[in-house]
Structures are given as structure tokens and as C-alpha cells.
């Protein structure tokens, strides 16, 4: 088991023991900023927005999370844009400690990648069509394991910081990455 997962698991278990169990039967919606390694690029920083909705059941929670991020990277010949639209179903193990809630969230689903490659200097050279720019779509199976910390600010408003490793299945292999978010949640 990777050391990161083991660490999060240990932390979650400790919090469950020390901090008690999250409140039961509430619905949470959240939205905010997202950062991630692009789903199908070996390097770069993909930034965008994330939104989610979930339902607490005491120790457990489940929900869906959607994010849209975009990365723009350059090679010697191309400007490559990847827009990643990700939709994950999530299940979480969570615990309350004071004003905070700590969660370990596992998600699975897919990431729709839209790729645009534009040839450097192609406009100046008068290139058109596929010689100037190519586009492609691809849906990649995805999974993510995130640790999340939620801090109650006032009333139903909650600040959530999350992050952790992610994987995408690409061309018969596993493309490892990471994702992180800074969100504001509203607990109904």
C-alpha cells in the first residue's frame, strides 16, 4: 500500500477515536478552486473550478464531485491545451474534531479530456486546418484518494481544503497525478 494512503488511513482512524463522529444526516454542497496535474500530460499545472454535493451518514459520507481545469503548456513546436472535465462518485470516511471535520475521500469515475494543439508560428506562416491546429476528445477512467479538512466558519458555511493522489487509465497504463481544492461548502 502506498505510504500516502497508509498515512491518511492512520490519520482518519486516529481522528475517529479522538474526535468523535460527524453529525448525522446532513447534505453538503460546495464549490471552489481546483489545482491538479493534467490528466493526460506528463507535466504542467491544471487549474480551474470544482463543485460537489454529498450526504453525510455519520461516520460515512457519499456524493459526487465535478471539476473543470485547464492546462496550457508549450513545447518547441506546439502550444498544447488540455481541458479536463472530471466527474467522480465519492465515498468518505469522516470524523469531527472541534470546529473541524476530517475526511478521507475515495472517488471513482471519468475525466473527459479535450486536447487542442496549435503549431507555434503557424498563423504567421499562413498554415490552416489540421496543419495549424488539431483537437481531440478522450474519456479516461479516473480514481482519486483525497484527504479533506473542513472548518466551520459561521452558521452553515464551511471552508474545505482537500488534496491527494489521483490516477487515470491512459493508453493501457496508469497515469499518476494529484489534485487539490480550496472550497466553500454550505451545509443544509
Amino acid at each position: 500500500m502506498p505510504s500516502g494512503i497508509r498515512t491518511w488511513g492512520t490519520l482518519a482512524a486516529a481522528l475517529l477515536v479522538a474526535g468523535g463522529i460527524a453529525r448525522a444526516q446532513s447534505t453538503v454542497v460546495d464549490g471552489g478552486l481546483a489545482l491538479a496535474l493534467p490528466a493526460a500530460l506528463p507535466t504542467g499545472l491544471s487549474s480551474g473550478v470544482v463543485a460537489g454535493a454529498g450526504r453525510d451518514h455519520g461516520l460515512f459520507a457519499w456524493g459526487v464531485r465535478a471539476s473543470w481545469t485547464r492546462a496550457i503548456e508549450d513545447t518547441a513546436s506546439w502550444r498544447v491545451r488540455h481541458a479536463d472535465l472530471s466527474l467522480l462518485g465519492t465515498g468518505a470516511l469522516q470524523a469531527v474534531a472541534g470546529r473541524g471535520t476530517f475526511a478521507l475521500r475515495l472517488g471513482a469515475g471519468g475525466t473527459l479530456v479535450h486536447e487542442t494543439r496549435r503549431r507555434h508560428q503557424g498563423d504567421r506562416a499562413g498554415l490552416t486546418g489540421d496543419e495549424l491546429q488539431t483537437t481531440a476528445w478522450r474519456l479516461l477512467p479516473a480514481a482519486a484518494l483525497e484527504g479533506a479538512v473542513a472548518l466551520r466558519l459561521a452558521g452553515p458555511w464551511v471552508l474545505v481544503v482537500s488534496g491527494g493522489p489521483s490516477i487515470h487509465l491512459l493508453d493501457g497504463g496508469v497515469h499518476g497525478g494529484w489534485a487539490a481544492g480550496l472550497e466553500i461548502a454550505w451545509r443544509l
Binding site: 498544447v80 503549431r119 506562416a125 481531440a136 478522450r138 474519456l139 477512467p141 479516473a142
Partner: peptide, 25 residues
Amino acid sequence: ALALAPALASCDDLVGFGGAPTPLA
């Protein structure tokens, strides 16, 4: 979403940073 993800996992080929550069002329 979970059911469709594997089914739709093959669309266009992503090239990323690879592929030969297009000649400008």
C-alpha cells in the same frame, strides 16, 4: 458516470507533447 467511464474511454488519440512538428512551409 461510473458505468459510462470505461465504455467511453476510447475516443480520439491524445497526442500531448508528442508527435512530429508540422512543417511551416
